[in-house]
Amino acid sequence: MSKLITLIIDDKQVEAKEGERLLWVALDNGIYIPHLCDLRMARRTVASCRLCFVEIEGLPNPVTSCTQTVSEGMVVRTRSPRVDRLLRTGFELLLSNHRLHCAKCAKNKRCELQKIAKERGLKLKLTRLRQLVKEAQIDESPGVFCYDSSKCVLCGRCIWADQEQVKVGAIGFIRRGIGRKVATFEDGLLADSICTQCEACVKICPVGAFYLKEDERKPYKIKKEC
């Protein structure tokens, strides 16, 4: 048993086990920190979403709370002008590569991006950046779910679920930079891959990239009155 320690997050004294990750300590104590890529069960923290920044007293710059382990007497602030700015920019960068059409999205109201926007008072709209994704790229080949890479935020949760949780190994990251995407071997259809269609990726996806076909809202037709 690792020993219990106390630390202060946003003026609230909390107890935690030494060595635990700060992000999960905060979330367990009802303090919200925006996050996408980290999973409690994951052995390795990827720290790729760059949203969970916090300020820690004694450290010169904000740090990602998913990679920070807690220690005795730590004083943490989850909000500060610097943290908010990092989040605002990181969030907008994610949105610039995310096809926004919430009203018709299968994950509307259950979307992690919407939650972050609501919690931090951010707009689900681009103000400084240009929209990169233009069209939907949907793989409808699996029986009950779809994969829309134009909505993927590259958090890598589905890859963790696929490779570590259910140990299938059908999907992974391919290419790099702007071409980076979650795909199968040789970027083929999911149905043609070794995918077992277990839906673990659908359950874990924070946004509308992997979604059940039954959740899809049929695009309604706008009647034009002449």
């Binding site: 490779q163 190994g169 999907i171 992974g172 290419r175 795909a183 199968t184 071997f185 070794i194």
Partner: peptide, 13 residues
Amino acid sequence: QLPEVEVFGVGTF
């Protein structure tokens, strides 16, 4: 003993 897609990922990266 790696997923095929992992090797493909490295090859395309």
